[in-house]
Amino acid sequence: MSASWLLRRVLLIAYTILVVSLLVFGITQVLPADAAVTLLGENATPAALEAVRLKLGLGDPVWLQYLRWLSHVLTGDFGVSMRTGQPVGPEMFAALSRSLLLAVGAILVMLVLAVPLGMLAALRQGRLVDMFTSLVSYLGVSLPEFVTATLMLMLFADRLQWLPATGYVAPLEDFWDSVRHLVLPVLTASVILIAHVARMVRSETLDVLHSDYIRAARLKGLPEPVVLLRHALRNALLPVVTIVALDVGYLLGGIIVIEEIFALPGIGRQLVVAITARDLPSIQAGALIMAATYAVANSLADMAYAFLDRRIRYD
């Protein structure tokens, strides 16, 4: 992983974001929403509407509007929300941080549970653990999030009353309360990740255990735990990195259902609110930030992969 690779990677991310910005801007142009009408309401006089259009530059050619928007974005200015009148950037980044908290939590829970589960299933192929893992995986993949979420709510929030049902508390405000609020959404989100990853780890471990180098390690007289942890684990984990990177997309956009059910104001939820309100600056900012996060997450995954598997060379 050389400096030139990193540089190229950064350029690639920038390029991705540029393309996304074009798409996002294009789509918001096609949306049946007139910014002036959104701002002033349905009953505004034509003269007032015209004044706003002039002030916002809505009459300018599209490419000029795009360049103006892009240059503002580059300085960190995503514009002002048409719904609240507040700057869009800080609002969206705050929402992103809440979503990332959820995503990182879900990935951690997944790593702690799915990796050992998958490896155990492979080692005890055809036995109880294996069947249990298969069951968990099928359930996780086939149950929609709103079902899992509802079941969690019924059990932990309603019946047992262990955890709060909805809401969000910032970690800096009250750490423990924040964690208590995050547990259920994180668990719900991790179910599907565990389902993906446990199966992947299982099949990958099976492959690795049948490989020549594992046999060689055993025939060198290494005890089984060393064979598994030193020789098998790393190789079995390789594809997990890829899966996790792909799931980041799901965790950012797809868990809108979870954010909605647990009333967690993440970026997915903010984006839906913005779309319903035809709040163009918020839509643009939300989509762009999501795309950027996804691009960065994937690059991080590539780097992790290169670190784990030295055969991958980025030179």
């Binding site: 490989s211 020549d212 060689a216 055993r218 025939l219 060393v226 030193r230 190789n235 598997d309 030295r310």
Partner: peptide, 30 residues
């Protein structure tokens, strides 16, 4: 006994060595 009293050399060195560990590590672990 394995590795200590009976050593073994395998057919294909490109599959009998672990791709994710250094050669030194795989040699010195025994």
């Amino acid at each position: 006994i394995r590795g200590r009293r009976i050593g073994m050399v395998f057919q294909d060195p490109s599959t009998s060595l672990n791709p994710t560990l250094t050669l030194g590590r795989q040699l010195t672990e025994v």
